[in-house]
Design a protein around this nucleic acid. Structure first.
Lengths: 193, 193, 193, 193
DNA sequence: CATGAATGAGCCTTCATTCAT
DNA sequence: AATGAATGAAGGCTCATTCAT
C-alpha cells in the first residue's frame, strides 16, 4: 500500500488536475482529459500520466467524499443507539450523493480503476452492513433487507431526487423526505400480508 | 390527434426500425441512428426521416410500455380499495422500469420529442396522483408525500435495483423487496419526531 | 421550337414552382429542389419532372428578366443616337444584374440547361455587339473593346457593387456611379501611351 | 503580435497543408479539410488543429499574395507621380486577382477568420485610399469615386475577366484592357451632364 | 517528467436523385 | 402526372489516445 510519494511539482500538478475536474463535475460538464488539461494549463500527456482514463480521474475527485463517508461509518459504530446510528449514517450517505455529482457514477460502477477506490467503497458498504446488522439484531429493523441493499437504496434515493427535478436548493429537503419515508419502511415490522 | 396513416412500405420500415432499436435497448447498446440503419438494412436517410433524433426513436420504443402503464392506471381507478389500487399501480410501474431499459431515460427526461410521449407520461403521472390522493384521503398513506413524488420514487427504485447488480432474473425480486419497504414507509403515520 | 403546351394543372404547378424559386432567389436562399417542393406544397417528383436540375429552375426564374433585356436591345437599335443607345442598353443591363440575383449565375454560366436560355443570352449579347459596333463606327467609342466584352463588363460592375457591400437601396446608385466611370473610359480616345 | 513559433514538425505540416490547399485552389477544386488531409497524407485532426475552417485555410493560402500587395502599396507611395503610382498599384492588384484564385473570395468576404488577414486587407485598402487621394488632389482623377470603391472595382474587373472566359493565358491581357478602359474613365473630368 | 502535435476511428447530418405507389 | 419515401454517397467534426520532442 505504500506509494512512492510524488515529486513536489508532480504533486502540484496532481492537485491542479483534480481541482479542475472537481469544478467540471460541479458544473455538470462531462470529464474530458483533453479539456481538463487545457483548463489546468498542462499538457495532455501530463494529465494522462496521472490519470489513465476519465474514470480514474473521477474516482480521484470522489475520493475525499468517500473517505468522509467511510470515516463517518467508523464513528457511527460508536453510537450506543443502533437505530440512530443507522439513521445518521444513511442520512449522511444520501446527503453526499445529492450534493456531490461525482459519487453516483463511482458508486454505481461495477469495477473501479484505482484500488484505493475499491477499498473505500468496501469500507462504506461494510460500515453499512455492520450498522444494519446491529439494528436488525436490536429488533429495530425488518429482517428482509440485506446489508448489500443499503448503498443501492441510497443511490436510488439520490436518483429519485434528481428525477424529481427542482432547484438544487430544494434537493436536500426532498432527499430528507424520501429517506424519511424509506426509513419508516425499514423500521416497520416485516410485511404482514 | 389525426395523424396521416403511413404508406404501407413506410409503415413496414417504421416497424423494422423500432424493432431494431428495441433489440439494441435490450442489449444495453446506446442508440445510434446510423447503427440502427445499418442493422435494419435501411438507408440512413430513411431512419432520419422517421426519427430525427435518437431520443425520438427511444420514445417510440418506450411508447407501448407507457401505454400499458397508462391503461393500467385507468383500470386501477376502478379498484374499490384505495390502498390496494395504489400498491398494484406502483408495482406495475416498478416492474416496467426494471424490465424495460427504455423507460428510465424517457421518464427522467425533462422534455419530450414526440407529443404523444408527453401525453402518455402525463397520463401515468396523473393516474398516480389520483390514486395517491384517494389513498391519502382514506387515511392509508402519510400526508407528506406529494403525487409528484411517485414517479421519481419508482425511478429511484429501478435505479437502486440496477446498482445492486445481480442477474436480470433476480431483479424483479429485488424490485419487489425494495418497493415493499418503501410502501411500508408510505403506509405509516407521519413521522413522529 | 414548338413545345407541347402543358396541361392546365401542370402549367399551374410550373408557375407555382417558379414563383417559389423566385422568392428563394430574392431571399438569397440557395435553390434546393426538395426545399422548393416543400414550400410549393408539391411532391419532389413533380418538381423534378419540370426542372431536372437546380440550374434549369434558376434559368426559368431568370428568363423573364433576360427577355426584357433582349427586348430592350431590339428597341435600342431604333435609337438614332448610337452612343445614347449603347449607354441606355448598358444601364438597363447593369440595373438588372444588380436588382435580380438570378441573373449573375445564369449569365456567367458557360453552358445552359434550357435552349431558350441560350437563345436569350445570345440575343442580348448580339444586341450589345451591334450597338457597340454602331457606336464605334460613329467614332463615339474607343476601338480596342470587342463586343464580347460588354456583357462580362456589366457582370463585373454588378460584382463590384456586391463586393462594395452597402444596403440594397444604395446598390443602384453605386452601380450607376461605376457604370458612369466605365462609360467615360469607353468614350475616350484610344489609349495614347 | 507575438505568436509562439511552431514546433519544427508542426511547421512542416502547416506548410504541407497550405501547399496542398494552394494546389487545390489553383485547380479550382473547393477546399475541403478532409480532402486536404488525405492529399497531404495527414490525419484530419491535424488539419483541423491548424485550420478550424476552410475559410481559415483559404486565408492562409491568400496571405503571401496579400502581403505582396500591401508591400507594393507601401512602395507606390514613394512614387513622385501620383497618377502613375495609382495606375501601377491598381495594375498589380488586378493582376493578382486574375492570377490567384484565392484572392477573390478572401477579398470579398465581409469578415475574416484570422486577424492577420484583416490587417493585410486593411493595409491594401488603406494604401489604395491614400494613392487615390493624392491623385485626386493632383487633379488627375474624377472626384466622385471614393477610396472604398477601388478594391471592389478591381474585384469587378477580375470577375469580368472570368466571365469573359478564354484561356488562362489570355486573361492577363484581357485584364489589362479592362483596367485601361476603367482608368481612362477615372482620369476623365467629372461627368458633364 | 512534461509537453502538445498528430492520429483517425467513429459519429452525425444533409441533400440530390430515384422509383414504387 | 403526381407523390413522397427511400437511398446512400459525401462531408463535417470530435475526442480518446499515442508518441516524438
Amino acid at each position: 500500500m505504500t506509494t512512492t510519494p510524488l515529486r513536489k511539482d508532480a504533486a502540484r500538478n496532481w492537485d491542479r488536475i483534480v481541482a479542475v475536474a472537481r469544478t467540471l463535475v460541479d458544473e455538470g460538464t462531462p470529464l474530458q482529459l483533453n479539456d481538463v488539461a487545457r483548463r489546468a494549463g498542462l499538457g495532455v500527456g501530463t494529465v494522462y500520466r496521472h490519470f489513465a482514463t476519465p474514470e480514474a480521474l473521477l474516482e480521484a475527485v470522489a475520493t475525499p467524499c468517500l473517505e468522509a463517508l467511510a470515516a463517518h461509518g467508523e464513528r457511527a459504530l460508536a453510537d450506543a443507539d443502533p437505530w440512530r446510528a443507522l439513521e445518521t449514517f444513511l442520512t449522511r450517505t444520501v446527503e453526499a450523493q445529492v450534493t456531490d455529482a461525482s459519487l453516483a457514477p463511482v458508486t454505481a460502477a461495477a469495477t473501479d480503476t484505482v484500488p484505493r477506490t475499491t477499498e473505500l467503497k468496501n469500507a462504506v458498504w461494510e460500515a453499512g452492513a455492520v450498522l444494519l446488522d446491529r439494528a436488525r439484531r436490536s429488533g429495530a429493523v425488518r429482517p428482509d433487507l440485506a446489508s448489500a441493499d443499503l448503498v443501492p437504496l441510497m443511490c436510488g434515493i439520490a436518483y429519485a431526487v434528481q428525477v424529481r427535478g427542482r432547484a438544487p436548493a430544494d434537493r436536500i429537503e426532498t432527499a430528507h423526505r424520501y429517506l424519511a419515508t424509506l426509513l419508516e419502511g425499514l423500521r416497520a415490522a416485516p410485511p404482514t400480508r
